[in-house]
Structures are given as C-alpha cells and as structure tokens.
Design a protein around this nucleic acid. Sequence first.
DNA 1: TCAATAGTTTTTTATAATTCAATACAAATA
DNA 2: TATTTGTATTGAATTATAAAAAACTATTGA
Lengths: 300, 300
Amino acid sequence: MARSDTRYREAFNDILAYCDTLKIGSALPSENALCQQAGVSRTVIRRCLSKLEELGVIRWEGREKRILRQPCEEDRIAIPPVNGSREDLEKRFLDWILRFDVPANTPLSVAELSRRFNVPQYELKEFLASLSRFGLVARRKQGGWMLLGFTRAFAIELSDFRSVLELNAIANVVEAPIDHPVWEQLVELRQKHMSLKDQIDTDFHAFSKLDEAFHEVINSVVRNRFVVEFQKVISLVFHYHYMWDKTDEKDRNAAAIDEHLAIIDALEARDSDAALDAARRHLRTSKSTLLSSLRHHDLG
Amino acid sequence: MARSDTRYREAFNDILAYCDTLKIGSALPSENALCQQAGVSRTVIRRCLSKLEELGVIRWEGREKRILRQPCEEDRIAIPPVNGSREDLEKRFLDWILRFDVPANTPLSVAELSRRFNVPQYELKEFLASLSRFGLVARRKQGGWMLLGFTRAFAIELSDFRSVLELNAIANVVEAPIDHPVWEQLVELRQKHMSLKDQIDTDFHAFSKLDEAFHEVINSVVRNRFVVEFQKVISLVFHYHYMWDKTDEKDRNAAAIDEHLAIIDALEARDSDAALDAARRHLRTSKSTLLSSLRHHDLG
DNA sequence: TCAATAGTTTTTTATAATTCAATACAAATA
DNA sequence: TATTTGTATTGAATTATAAAAAACTATTGA
C-alpha cells in the first residue's frame, strides 16, 4: 500500500556483494561511503546494515561494523521483476496509435492503456500530459484524456513544421566545416542510395529505413534540444506512414531516392540554393504521400 | 482520501436553479436530459435528485419527478474554493524561474512548488512532465525533478529555434493575401512604433510590450499548433530578459524600433529577401541581448 | 414492439493517505 | 574540528478509495 522498496533491495544485494570481497573481521567503511558506493541515501544504507546485522553477517555497534561471516546465496533478497520499460513507452504508444490506426477523437482510458502497456497509471498520466504539448492528446472536461489524433490538419501542420526544421538543417549542412562527420556520412548514404536504386525492383521495401537514416544525418548537424525532441515524433510518424501506403510503393521509393541524391549532390557542391530547392521538392512529395496515405486510411 | 465532489456540488446548484424556473407541481425532464443540461453523468444527476428529494424540493418516484416547493437560498450547497488557476500555472512557473533567477540545476521539490503555487501535487507533476518536452526540466535518478534552467546553452538553442520559426513566419507574411488581417495590423504597428520613437527619451520602457505585440502579429500568420505552443515559452523568456537588462536600455530599444520598422517596410513592399535580411539582423540583435543579459546575471 | 427511461453494476478517474527514501540537523566521537 | 552516527523532518512514489462515468439490464408507455 505504498511505494516499492526496490531501491533498498538492490542496495542490499550490492552491499552484500561488497561484504563478500572483505575478509572476516575487517571493518566496513562509514555509512556515507557506503551511500556513495550504492548510490542511495543513508536511510537505505542503514536499513541494509540492520538487515545484515539481523542475518548475522556483520556486528554493528555505533561506528563499529565488522564482518562476522562470509555472506551466502541465501542472504540475498529477491528483487521484484521490473515491469516498467518506461523509456520506450513513447515509442510503443505511438506505435499503437499508428499501427492500429486509432481514429482521431478517441477517448483514451488510462486504466486500459495502463494494462495494455503494463505501466502504472500515474506514469501514463505524466506521459499523456507531456504528449499534450504536441497537441496529440488533450484533457477532457469529463475527466480523462482524448486522442486528438492524426487528423488531416495534424498531418499538414506536422509536415509544415517538419519542412521548416529540415530546410534549416539543410542550410546548416551547407555551412558545415569540411571536417564535419556529416560529409563522410553523406558519402556513405550516396553509396547506399545508389545500390538500392540498382535493386529497386526487389528491395524497394528497404527504402523506409534508408529514408530514416538520411533525414537523421541531415538533422544531426543541428544541435538543438527542441529540434531533437520533435524529430523523434516526426520520424516515427513518417516512418509508419511510409510503410503503410502501398500504392505505387516501388515508384514512389524510386522517385524519393532520386530526390535524396539530388539533395546530396547539391550539398556536396555546397550549393545552398540548389540544396534548398531539392529539399523543398522532396518535402513536398513527402507531405503529399503522407496526406494521401491518410486519405486511403479514411476510405478503408 | 478520494476525489472531490465538486462536480456534484456544482451540478446540484445548477439543477436547483433550474428547478427555480419551474412552476410548483410541474415535472422535471428525464435524467438523461438533466445530464445534458448540467454536463455531468447520470450518477451525479441521481445524487442531485436524491438530495432534492431529501430537502423536500421534489417528489421522486420512478420517472415521476415533481416540484414540491420553490427552492430557497439555504438549499444551495457550498462549493469549496477553487484553488486551481491551472491555466496560468505555466505563466506563474516561468515567471517564478525568471523573476527570481532560479539557477540551473536546481532540484525542484514538487511538495514545495505545490505550496508555492497553491496547486495539488499531482497537477504539478503533470505540468513538469509536460515542461520536460522543452528540455527545461528533467527527472532525477533519485526521484523528483530538476530545473535544467536557463543556461547559456539553453538560451542559444532557444534563440536559434526562435530564429527558425520567425524567419518562416516572415516568409509566410510576404505571401499572405492582400485581405489578410496582418496587413492592417502592420499599419497599426508602424504607427505605434513611430510614435514611441518620437518619445523614446521618456517612454522607452514601453518598448517591451510593443516588441511582444510585434512578434505576435508576425507569428499569427502561421497557423500551426507546434509553433503556437513554442511561441508561448519563447515570448515569455524574451519578454523578461528585455525587462531586466538595463544596460543601454534606451539605445537598445531605439535600435530595435528601427529594426522593426525595417522589417515592416520590407514586408509591405512584399520584398521577401529584404524582409528576411531585416529579420535576421533583428534576431541577431535579440540573441546577443539575451546572452548578454544572462552574462550580467551570472556576474551579479 | 421498440425507443426512451430508470435501476443496477462495473469501470475509471481524481485525489489523499501511506510507506519508502532523501535530507537536514543534532550529538558524539576520534 | 572534521567526520561519523543518531534522530527528526520533509518529500516522493505508489496505493487505496470515494466520486464520477459508463455500461448493462429492466421497465415503461406510446
């Protein structure tokens, strides 16, 4: 009926292992030193020491902490299975929305999502709150949350925003110093694009990944926390939609490869205007692909 | 130890007021209809009806709900003072950081903030989670939150990001149709700038507000939820720093007025290149002002 | 008969309570 | 006097629970 004591459990096993490295009769360092070692507070360390004393592993009196016996396997305490893959909750959430085509204006049940993603409710609430900054979800008056979702308007605004960021990135690449890693990466990318182009008839599915890599390299030049944050969402959305819209997939991908190559050409020539033009063309294609994929979804 | 019943209380007073409009002996509409009226669930409505019956305002049996007497003032139930100015929590929070110059890497205590802003803890958690998208706060390993704060790096990245958005906005303004409200607003802004320029010796403090208005008008052309979200933070940060840095304030403001006017000139001439150039100049000044204001703060 | 309504049950959400953990402060030791 | 320990206070994660919403079932009356 309260918070978990995982911190204590982990620390205990930690300290136990440390005791194992010490000779019987030798002294343990100060509580503060142990704190540092285990990365927890003194409260936790003292709880550990109490337990060690109770088990008879140490004698503890004031600042006198001496090893009495070698710890054994049974002394260790079990650590409850860590459920929370909190880190990739975002990925899994967006994945779910996009893959199952969750329609706009769907009420989101925190309880249900909590079960689905195996994440405590309060964590989901925080997550949804953070997503609300992207205008993807919003609070409902009756309580709970609402998926505003991938409406046409959202797609358009996302595309436009992406264009703004990406054109800026392109402009930055042109200005990048000669020894910037981006140039080497572009050479590599050109290779990969060329070879995929040769085998486009069979391997056209591989383009989605290459597309992601391409845009990642371009954007890596911009070191900006705001851009980075958005890029995560943007790339996921575009990635999925690329995978879905199967109409003319081969042709589309072939065309996109050429567009990418045109951008690379212009960048390597340090021709800012040409690069921006090429990028604009590509972004325009991307946007209309995204929109048409939404249209197909609506109809289906 | 549970959620508040404010919803019920408000609904009750609502329904009571509605009863007041009905004649004695007349029937109340169906539960569902009352739900709609009060904007709550049937559960709440039934609770209200029970209470009304208990008070003897109505007789309630099955679908028979009849007014017995006119409600009076004492029938109303008190609504606990609404603490949450949830809406402007963001403003107040940023205000606090900026005004009190809370240093970077300050651990934020949810408990303390909750007291300071008179907002329940869980609401603050959600708020901080949402702010984490801007990279302004982050979770700590030991639990709790950390203000990453207005470091130099943050200011630079924010300025750069602002430039990207603002230059895009400028480009959009140039393309705006002749009947777009922005043109009229620009005429007005020009007036205000001119008159402030005339009285710059005495009224230079008024520039901060004018600056905000100017950038708001420029950005209003871009209808994009992502841009709007960011603009809120950006304008607040720049607004405050403008107010602080008192060195050469008059000269700086006078110069900024000219920069604004140059932008307006170019926009009205529909000269895209000139407008962008002028905007770039202005943004550069803005950035260095922001940075120097940070520097002064660091030293002081 | 069936659409609307009411009665009842189940599920979900908002929020405070609770326990674990961190920190602050005082006392003691070396 | 600088560490170290003992103790008290404060804060955060997580659960428990009342309130509210939603879902389901039964009833009514046109």
